[in-house]
Simulated scan of single mutants.
Amino acid sequence: MNDTFMYLIFLWTLIFIGLLAIGGFFMFRKFLKRMPKEDGRSELDWQYYYINQALPLWQEDSRALLNELVSPVPELFRDVAKERIAGRISKIALDEKADKIELDHMMRGYIIATPKRDHGFMKKKLKELNIDYSPYMKYFEFADDEKKKFSIFDHSELAQKK
Rank of each mutant, 00 (worst) to 15 (best):
F31L: 07
L69F: 03
K116L: 06
L65S: 09
P115Y: 04
K37Q: 14
H155S: 08
R108L: 03
I15A: 09
F31K: 11
F150I: 08
M137T: 14
G23I: 06
F77W: 12
A98F: 03
Q59V: 08
D132T: 00
L32S: 07
Y136F: 05
R63K: 15
D145S: 05
M122Y: 01
H155P: 02
R117H: 14
I17H: 03
E38A: 14
Y7S: 13
E83D: 15
F10H: 12
Y7C: 11
Y136M: 01
F5K: 14
D132A: 00
W12V: 14
K124N: 10
I17Q: 02
D144G: 04
I9R: 08
L11S: 08
Q47A: 12
D154L: 07
K162D: 09
K148S: 10
D45Q: 09
K127E: 11
K30N: 06
K100F: 10
K124P: 01
I89T: 08
E60N: 14
L19W: 11
M6I: 13
N52S: 10
F142Q: 12
I92N: 04
F153K: 02
Q47M: 13
M6L: 15
T13W: 09
K124D: 09
P74E: 04
N130Q: 12
K33M: 13
K100H: 10
